[in-house]
Amino acid sequence: MTTDPVPLLPRGTRLHQDRVRDTWVLLVPERALLLDEIGTAILQEVDGRSSLAAISCRLAERYGAPEPDVASDVREFLDGLVGQRLVDYQ
């Protein structure tokens, strides 16, 4: 695995907007996970082409936050999802 992997949602995993509750969920076979705004923003950037650094850079700019802090949080968040096989790194 490279130090700047490209995350992607595996087959069968998708983001879904629950309009009734005005929230986003990550749907995987037989499971659903509730996302907050930041988690949603991160996963909306996961397109299978953008590297972790590119995603972090865009989010840091959007939220006006220090890039190292954003990169650390994004990495920790996605690593956790990779550990649960909800996201893949390529």
């Binding site: 879904h16 969920v25 499971r31 996970l33 509730l34 988690g39 991160i42 939220y63 006006g64 968040f77």
Partner: peptide, 16 residues
């Protein structure tokens, strides 16, 4: 909204 650590929660065994 300011940046903060993202949160993801399993939905308890709770509209498509």
């Amino acid at each position: 909204m300011a940046w903060k650590k993202p949160i993801i929660k399993n939905i308890a065994c709770m509209n498509m």
